[in-house]
Nucleic acid binder design. Sequence first.
DNA 1: GCAAACGTCAACCAATTGGTTGAATATCCA
DNA 2: TGGATATTCAACCAATTGGTTGACGTTTGC
Lengths: 107, 107
Amino acid sequence: MTQSLDAVFAALADPTRRAILSMLLEDDMAVTDVAAPFEMSLAAISKHLIVLTSAGLISQEKRGRVKWCKLEPDAMREASVWMQGFGLMDGVDLDAFERFLDQELDS
Amino acid sequence: MTQSLDAVFAALADPTRRAILSMLLEDDMAVTDVAAPFEMSLAAISKHLIVLTSAGLISQEKRGRVKWCKLEPDAMREASVWMQGFGLMDGVDLDAFERFLDQELDS
DNA sequence: GCAAACGTCAACCAATTGGTTGAATATCCA
DNA sequence: TGGATATTCAACCAATTGGTTGACGTTTGC
């Protein structure tokens, strides 16, 4: 469940993948539609989507012949909290912050 | 000045480099001391430090024969803000968050 | 002056990454 | 049934990454 920071940061390190995530912020999309704006092959986009999926940043569900991609932003939370540890939120106990977030997001 | 998201995320994708950043949270350190806890060569650590430096996440200053490494957490800010764009705080009761912060900063 | 400490450089290596193309699979629809 | 659409698979390629070792240049202190 808890995504590895390695996989999440590595997935976010590619501009194409970040652009895909931004597109999915609008709405769920089919693979072909995700690929449309990019000047690379569908197979290349398909690989990027596999990277995003295995990092937990998106999920894919096949309905008929179409595979829908859905953003899973929760996978970013661990990474985001890790970064907050570097003075972006001075003086705050990070573990407590994480517990707070968990509690808030469950409610 | 503004660090590329590519470089920052890629730098953060390696556990050794993240560990180095955490160590530098305590204090500035010499390259040799940074390398000490790791089971890899000094040259390998030196390369990791170059990656961190070119991402802007640390700075290095040579005094005498010792090169000091200093954390530059501001380089994470752009990446952190980018991630916040994905609704990580959605569903969080902002008043509760403020109370949490007050409580944290008092303790 | 010289040996030891600090750190980088250069060459090398295996594994991974990001892309390609062409064939394969699965589904839909006329 | 068969053709078009949606997506992945497999093989390949060049470039990058993360590590090694050994030689090298500086600085320090006896």
